[in-house]
């Protein structure tokens, strides 16, 4: 078997900013002293005059981005998810969300794959926080291809957008000639009839791995990749749930308020279905390598496989 290409979604983010920066002179990028890590440093190098380092002051950065958007620029503000969505939550809510400004938030180092930095930096709450803001688009790309597509779509979309990116290199799974991206559209990446696994971010690859193991046991799982958590593609989820009758959600995020909750919200309205939520089970993370952490917290293929099995056997 050939080695699967692995790239962190934050790399895709940095590359996309540079690419779009060449086409769109209104694109400006802000960071809070983390340009190397968030990969906005690539944009800084290419377009120093359109890069604004705000220093370690994320709340002010959110307001500055708002002001830039009010005067014709398209700002992408970046920091780690913990600070962009967590620390600056109220600024994002009141200075960006409430006036529905055209500000894009590129939040990197989301989830536990931050790794060694530990729980203080592992943001498992950002999807929950951001999806409560009216009008906010929330996306979580699964790989490099999707990350770049999401950045482009965000810039073409009028209004606030939050995109979460990861630190760790992840397999490229969407590198196909017919790949298309649209905000609010999920994709079935594997068809099945016995159980639906709705996954986002790094868990899409884990779900594919889990499905392969389940297949060996005659269990055919349908995998839906949800990059846009808000607005959610309810139709694709409900249709699949009607077919399989059982739904598992998988995300590198708290099971409270994230993809799992969004899926439950959708299903409970028109297609009540038993749902098992894979994610961080109302606990903080810890230091360790990304690989060790996803294993411990059962977000890798084996972990998803085990939890799906357990759910199906109930």
């Amino acid at each position: 078997m050939s080695e699967v290409k692995k790239i962190a979604t934050r790399e895709g983010y940095g590359n996309a900013l540079v690419e779009i920066g060449k086409e769109n002179p209104n694109l400006v990028v802000l960071d809070a002293d983390l340009a190397e890590a968030t990969k906005t440093g690539m944009f800084k190098k290419a377009f120093p005059d359109r890069f604004i380092d705000c220093g370690i002051a994320e709340c002010n950065m959110a307001g500055v981005a708002a002001g830039l958007s009010l005067t014709g620029k398209i700002p992408f503000m970046s920091s780690f998810a913990m600070f962009a969505a967590g620390r600056a939550f109220e600024q994002v809510r009141n200075s960006i969300g409430y006036p529905h400004l055209n500000v894009k938030i590129g939040a990197t180092h989301a989830g536990i794959t931050v790794g060694e930095d530990g729980a203080s930096h592992q943001c498992n709450e950002d999807i929950a926080l951001m999806r409560t803001i009216p009008g906010m688009v929330v996306m979580c790309p699964a790989d490099d291809v999707e990350a770049r597509a999401a950045v482009r779509a965000a810039i073409e979309h009028e209004g606030p957008v939050y995109i979460r990116f990861g630190r760790a290199a992840v397999p490229v799974i969407n590198d196909k000639p017919d790949y298309k991206f649209e905000i609010g559209k999920g994709t079935i990446v594997k068809e099945g009839t016995d159980v639906t696994i709705v996954a986002t971010g790094i868990c899409v690859d884990s779900a594919l791995g889990a499905a392969a193991k389940l297949e060996e046991e005659g269990i055919r799982a349908e995998i839906i990749n949800i990059c846009t958590i808000k607005p959610l593609d309810e139709e694709i989820i409900i249709k699949s749930a009607q077919k399989t009758g059982k739904v598992v959600t998988a995300e590198e995020h708290s099971v409270i308020g994230g993809l799992g909750s969004a899926v439950c919200d959708a299903l409970s309205k028109s297609c009540p279905t038993p749902v098992y939520k894979i994610g961080m089970q109302d606990i903080f993370g810890e230091s360790g390598s990304a690989a060790d952490l996803v294993k411990k917290y059962k977000l890798d293929a084996q972990g998803v496989y085990e939890q799906v099995k357990e759910f199906l056997n109930k």
Binding site: C59, N60, A62, G63, G67, S95
Partner: peptide
């Protein structure tokens, strides 16, 4: 009204963004 406000401490940041934007564009 050029900007919504009400939560204290935030308007000055937005004003900074507007002023910086003018500088960047030569307005």
């Amino acid at each position: 009204v050029d900007m919504s406000s009400g939560s204290l401490g935030q308007g000055i940041s937005v004003a900074c963004g507007m002023a910086l934007s003018a500088k960047m564009s030569g307005d």
